[in-house]
Amino acid sequence: MPEIEEVLPKYLQISGYIRDLIHRGELAPGAEVPSERELAASWKVARPTAAKALNTLRQQGLVESRRGSGTYVTDTRAPARMRESRRYGARYAEHESVTIVSAEIVAGPEEVTAALDLPHGAPVIARKRLVTTDSGIAEISTSWFPGEFATAAQLLLVTRRIPGGVAEYVERTTGAEVAYARERVGARLASAQERRLLGVARPAAVLVYHLTLHAADHTALQFDELVYPSGHWTFQQEYSLRA
């Protein structure tokens, strides 16, 4: 077991160590994670510190607790569509056409600045894309970044696709490395702009997918919002139900 370092809080060092085991495959999906008591003993910390480390991993979606059983590694494999194209913003399906309609610095909306942990109204970079299929516009996608990234990552403000993908470009130019992602999926009524772009009548329900990319120190590097109209299959996943 590594020695505790003083650079990061102890609970972050513990959660980071376990996260690395998961990412390397040494703790596979379904594997049991050491308990609070075991972590406290092996790392020589108090139980609340061990509990906070496990809670950090839960918030990152890497582990889940089962009542009366323990804590286990979750299956963090993304649905096929997300795994192949969305997670790092690099690729789309062959039948999809992508148009970047705007790339600019704007005052950050409340939801965006909250996701990026910035003051309300702080400058952010917004890259908006339309994804079109044979049946019409299938997706409105917006990627948001801290405004300070504009100095090093100037291509974020250009309305053309970035070779290798946006997230990889941000890592390369800013030196910030993506460590984990947080995903949320929900539904709401389309805004006036979304109805216009999607060509749907009012009111119209849309599926909304949020993806936030974080560095190891929990700094938010990128916040994506993907909006889908009804009638379009968006996610696909195939998995075994056998033990």
Rank of each mutant, 00 (worst) to 15 (best):
S143Q: 06
L130A: 05
A152R: 15
I137V: 15
S141V: 14
E148L: 11
L155E: 02
L157T: 05
D134Q: 13
A138Y: 04
F145T: 11
V131Y: 07
L156T: 07
R127C: 05
S135D: 14
L130D: 04
F145V: 12
T142W: 04
F145I: 12
K128Y: 02
K128M: 11
V158A: 02
R127V: 01
W144V: 01
T142P: 08
E148P: 03
I140P: 01
E148G: 09
S141E: 14
V158W: 08
V131M: 10
L156K: 00
S135F: 06
D134G: 12
D134H: 06
G136K: 05
K128C: 05
F149Q: 01
Q154D: 11
T159V: 01
K128T: 15
G147Q: 04
Q154T: 15
A150N: 02
R129A: 08
F149P: 02
G147K: 02
W144I: 01
F149A: 04
W144H: 08
L130P: 01
E148S: 14
T151F: 08
S135T: 13
L130S: 00
D134P: 00
Q154K: 10
T151R: 13
S135V: 13
T151G: 07
I137A: 11
P146G: 13
Q154I: 09
A138K: 10
V131R: 10
W144K: 00
A138L: 07
Q154Y: 12
A138T: 12
I140C: 10
I137R: 12
A150D: 01
D134I: 08
L157D: 05
P146S: 15
K128L: 09
T159Q: 10
T159F: 09
V158D: 07
E148Y: 10
A150F: 06
A126I: 08
E148A: 14
F145L: 14
F149H: 04
S135M: 06
T159K: 10
S143W: 03
L156G: 03
L130I: 13
L157S: 00
L157H: 03
T133R: 06
L155H: 00
E148T: 13
S143I: 11
P146F: 14
V131P: 02
S141T: 13
Q154W: 13
T159H: 05
A152D: 15
F149D: 02
G136L: 03
A150S: 03
R127K: 11
L130Q: 05
I137E: 08
A152G: 08
T159E: 11
L157A: 00
E139K: 12
T142N: 07
L157M: 03
A153N: 09
T142D: 04
S143H: 08
Q154R: 09
F145K: 12
S141D: 11
I140R: 09
W144R: 02
E139P: 06
G147P: 01
I140N: 08
T132A: 15
S143T: 14
T132D: 13
E148R: 14
T132K: 15
E139F: 07
F145S: 08
T133V: 11
T151E: 15
A153P: 09
T132L: 09
F149T: 07
A126W: 00
A153H: 12
P146N: 14
I140S: 08
L156W: 06
V131D: 06
R127I: 02
G136D: 05
T142I: 14
A138I: 09
S143N: 07
S141N: 14
S141W: 10
W144N: 02
L130G: 03
V131L: 14
